[in-house]
Write a protein that binds this DNA or RNA. Structure first.
Lengths: 179, 179
DNA sequence: CGTAGGGTTGATAGAGCTCAAGACTTGTGG
DNA sequence: CCACAAGTCTTGAGCTCTATCAACCCTACG
């Protein structure tokens, strides 16, 4: 699956019904075919356009095209790096840093111009909670906190970065892992 | 890098010096080459024998050997699935479930015979904390808890599974993701 | 105009962190 | 063989962060 527009989420549901989003796919990214069943579900974060192809076509294409192969190879490594970063996020950062980190990553991955300071946050607070391993109630409080600290300003889903440097700092966001 | 014996850990260190182990490699598994710098460190959990090769050799080998290619393809997908499971673990399970899940996964991945009920836990409690995103103090209390509940019995690092089924349940461990 | 989903806020409880101290294990050098 | 050091495990006390529960508001939409 190749994301043309919008955002896709891979998620898993725990026994007790709690949901965890384990990966996101922004435009230009994709979900590669798997042997066997996937252990996760796929859902659109926003209305999205997605190209879907068959695994056999994909494999044939890649096998005879070394350029494509190394392209996907790099794509896989990027996703791996993002996954590791998310693990650090969930395991070792407090709730403010987790949300801030997600905002930073989202801004960079969706190609928003930081200088313009504006971004349309595509997530509901519940989805942010599902990504960062918290509750939506707490995500709400964290947003209020970030705003009170003067790091962001909100108008509906629209977010203005008022102090990108400081936001990066509290998130300990080092964009190198996104290449 | 190919792990012959022992266990390797990939880890990242957060700004405040807190460590998160983001992946493990058991015997028969490996760490594939990357373009550019890796954003993680590698450390042995126990004394390990590791075969190290160069990326160019690896790439050449894989490129002309489709069987190898699909082998590594599956390996990557397995690691991806494990990573997702770890995210669920850190994000959505309480501390008892996290430790229990790690024990289950370790038992299966290291090929221990569950029926024999015995496993040499290879980790220090600090390492378990670094994997599950907790403190070593709490890991210690969780172990005491699991023992009090009669799910495991400990003698040093040696662990006996006294009720594998129940342990799996509280960990919500579904081994399918390990293939 | 009613409804559902999302956002906001307060009160409360509890899980897990921090700090601190002591016991035990293992390896090293004299 | 002993003394010592470093690392690991264990336990208690207190506190903080975040979950939970519950109510209410706002907005979009049919």
């Amino acid at each position: 699956m190749f994301v043309r527009t919008g955002i896709l989420a891979k998620y898993k549901t725990e026994g007790s019904g709690r949901r965890q989003i384990v990966a996101l796919r922004f435009p230009g990214e994709g979900i590669l075919p798997r042997d066997g069943n996937a252990s996760y579900g796929i859902q659109g974060i926003v209305r999205s356009e997605v190209m879907v192809g068959s695994a056999s076509d994909f494999n044939a294409l890649v096998e005879k095209n070394p350029t494509l192969q190394s392209f996907f190879w790099r794509l896989i490594q990027r996703n791996e790096a993002i996954g590791y970063e998310w693990l650090v996020n969930c395991g070792r950062r407090d709730s403010v840093a987790r949300v801030a980190h997600l905002l930073c990553e989202t801004a960079v991955r969706s190609g928003v111009d930081i200088e313009s300071e504006m971004m349309l946050n595509p997530f509901t607070q519940q989805q942010i909670a599902d990504i960062t391993g918290q509750t939506s109630v707490n995500v709400n409080r964290v947003f209020a906190d970030l705003e009170r600290q003067g790091l962001i300003e909100r108008a509906g889903r629209e977010i203005a970065f008022r102090d990108w440097r400081e936001l990066r700092r509290i998130a300990s966001f080092q964009p190198a892992y996104l290449e």
